[in-house]
């Protein structure tokens, strides 16, 4: 009963703690240490890429939309970054600007098709993703461009074992939390996802809200692309084969954001990303074979969402009046 009073975000952070504890014990039982600098570094590094994508994905999912094109956008962005920078330190700001522009435009295209043409977001972003894939496949038959060493530090440097990329991701997450809570546009995303008709009738420009969510989601994918470029030292079209978009969606849903929109937030998403990262590191340290790893990951995601679904059913249901078999009315509880 007391658990139900906890809000969803607190519950997810508890789950993260649980995963860390169980993982730590499992690794320790295997004779290792999950909290060694190397393993911690691995964990943090894993959070940043999915983190960028998942933060943007949170915004569109809150609006009851979806973006399946983020993996392709990230791949495209890595190429834009590497070819624009072209090994020149002086070109770094230009490269970043170009990436944010291109990825923002992809998001804007997604948003415009969803908001103004009324095309289902699943189909829209799948289609836009395929268009980008086709372009990448025909234009880039291998790595292209060159990322200056200074920019590669974004992917590899760390401050006290925490990679710079993770810190940047957390900063973006903090900005996302602030955006959703304190700006009208962010706040309106809950309304658009909760009930678009109500939002419209309340005077919210739902199309602009959706556009904003998609543009920001695209730009987050752009940040992921910058990270990829800095890690590989070059732009690579191949990275879309990793299906990052599915990881991002999994993290968002693990983080307690309703896939149907209107409820959730970036704080939960960060925990979702962290849970996935911890699991992957644990599997890695324990040398779980890749097949079993995917099976476990899938099972954990489904189990988590099933638990949320139960909670949500409980939450929306009428409060029970009679509890035990003897059915004495519970005194003192407001009906």
């Amino acid at each position: 009963m007391s658990v139900r009073r906890l809000d969803t975000t607190a519950l997810i952070y508890l789950a993260l703690l649980g995963v860390v504890a169980v993982g730590g014990i499992a690794v320790a039982a295997d004779g290792g240490n999950l909290f060694s600098p190397a393993n911690l570094g691995d964990m943090f590094t894993r959070t940043s890429l999915t983190g960028f994508l998942a933060i943007g994905m949170t915004l569109v999912i809150l609006c009851r939309s979806l973006d399946l094109s983020v993996g392709y956008t990230a791949a495209l962005s890595s190429l834009v970054a590497a070819t624009t920078m072209d090994g020149q330190v002086a070109n770094i700001p230009l490269g970043i600007a170009a990436v944010l522009l291109v990825s923002g435009l992809v998001g804007a295209a997604n948003g415009a098709i969803v908001a103004y043409l009324g095309v289902n977001p699943f189909i829209t972003t799948l289609g836009v993703g395929l268009i980008i894939k086709g372009y990448l496949d025909t234009q880039y038959r291998g790595p292209a461009g060159d990322v200056p060493r200074d920019f590669q530090r974004f992917g590899y440097d760390g401050i006290a074992h925490i990679p710079v990329s993770t810190l940047v991701m957390l900063a973006v997450a903090a900005a996302g939390i602030w955006f959703l809570r304190s700006t009208r546009t962010g706040h309106h995303m809950y309304a658009v996802g909760g009930n678009i008709d109500v939002a419209r009738m309340s005077g919210i420009r739902t199309d602009r809200t959706l556009m904003t969510a998609h543009i920001l989601c695209g730009m987050c994918a752009g940040l992921a692309g910058l990270l990829l470029a800095s890690r590989f030292g070059t732009g690579s079209a191949e990275v879309y084969t990793n299906l990052y978009e599915l990881d991002a969606i999994a993290a968002v849903v693990l983080g307690g954001t309703l896939l149907l929109g209107g409820r959730g937030g970036v704080a939960g998403t960060v925990a979702g990303v962290a849970i996935l990262a911890v699991l992957d590191t644990v599997f890695n340290v324990l040398q779980v074979d890749p097949f079993a790893k995917d099976v476990l990951r899938g099972a954990i995601i489904i189990a988590a969402v099933a638990i949320y679904a139960r909670r949500q059913i409980d939450r929306s249901a009428r409060r029970p009046r009679f509890t035990a078999a003897d059915a004495a009315p519970t005194p003192g509880r407001p009906a």
Partner: peptide, 25 residues
């Protein structure tokens, strides 16, 4: 009903017209 169940009474009443201070809700 033109209300959002996941938002509070205040958030619903001021939906689309949230009072702002220095640009923030």
């Amino acid at each position: 009903f033109n209300l959002l169940p996941d938002l509070s009474v205040a958030e619903n009443i001021f939906l689309g017209r949230e009072p702002r201070r220095r640009g923030m809700i």
